[in-house]
Design a protein around this nucleic acid. Structure first.
Lengths: 163, 163
DNA sequence: CCGTATCCATTCTGATACTG
DNA sequence: CAGTATCAGAATGGATACGG
């Protein structure tokens, strides 16, 4: 893992600066004198926030659920499913549970027949939204160019420099 | 897909407002009168920027590579590998190619023996960094509480409201 | 209505071996 | 050094059936 410190196997190690709150370390290789920075976990327990949050977003559905809940404030299970459109019942359940476990959404069960369950973002969930929207807006702006790149770069497998 | 418009199968459809540049639509179900907003693709071609960017981040390695390149400016293949620590040669190659195809990084090959290849972020790549750092910093701040939640929520499977 | 359980297909990832 | 090729296991996601 990113987070299991093997220490520096490569040569001298040199503490450098803090960059936006994740810590890195400069590695200098003895033989070649080549240098590079290595991101370092600063939770000695083996929990790496960077990897952890990324693995969360990596779920195909988590972020879409958060966006949907943000837009709707409070939603029932079936409404989330219809809002997203193509998520299976299973994946919706699984993803909601994992978001709940992390305290990003809350679940309220009404003891009625038929049952009703309402989901909404917690405060922590809401605090994540601006960052997600940052990414989303970036994606929207850049998508046209990226699509263009994908097409052209399919062919240019042999250039010296790709762009 | 999120992006293939099935139109509204459910009832009246009503155009609402633009929220941070992704468009949604309010669905009102005829029978129940229940309402929810549905995110709508606004690229009629079937390309959904939201899903696309998310699927990118969902690659286990892409974001770590971007962070590393941002910290180091220019890196050789083997230095990226050592910087990240536990990425296999194969996954590094695969992920670098996909980032290159999308124009987030550039690859420069020096025709030497032994070969040398240097990677760096493109301008577009750099433009993504602040958004990634937003997420990363959020993760770093919130991780302690999230870890706590995970432990406590393991047991409370039966509460009426989870928090 | 809101799940859970089971099974299966697909995708992703890592290990290993080999090349210009 | 910087890859490519191949294969196997793990992780992920979807379809279906059933239950409180």
């Amino acid at each position: 893992m990113f987070c299991k410190n093997k220490q520096c196997l490569l040569g001298k190690q040199e503490r450098t600066y803090k960059l936006d709150s994740y810590i890195d370390v400069t590695i200098i290789e003895k033989q070649t004198n080549r240098k590079y920075k290595k991101m370092q976990n600063f939770h000695p327990t083996g929990v790496c926030p960077i990897r952890d949050i990324l693995s969360h977003l990596s779920s195909k559905w988590a972020t879409l659920i958060l966006i949907t809940l943000n837009a709707n404030k409070t939603m029932r299970f079936s409404d989330i499913q219809k809002s997203i459109g193509d998520i299976s019942q299973r994946m919706l359940t699984v993803t909601l549970r994992s978001l709940e476990t992390d305290g990003l959404i809350s679940r309220k069960i009404y003891a009625e027949i038929p049952p009703r369950v309402e989901y909404k973002l917690t405060e922590r969930g809401y605090s994540l939204i601006p960052h997600i929207e940052g990414l989303v807006n970036w994606a929207i702006e850049n998508m046209p160019m990226i699509m263009k790149n994908r097409k052209t770069n399919k062919l240019t497998t042999n250039g010296q420099e790709s762009f």
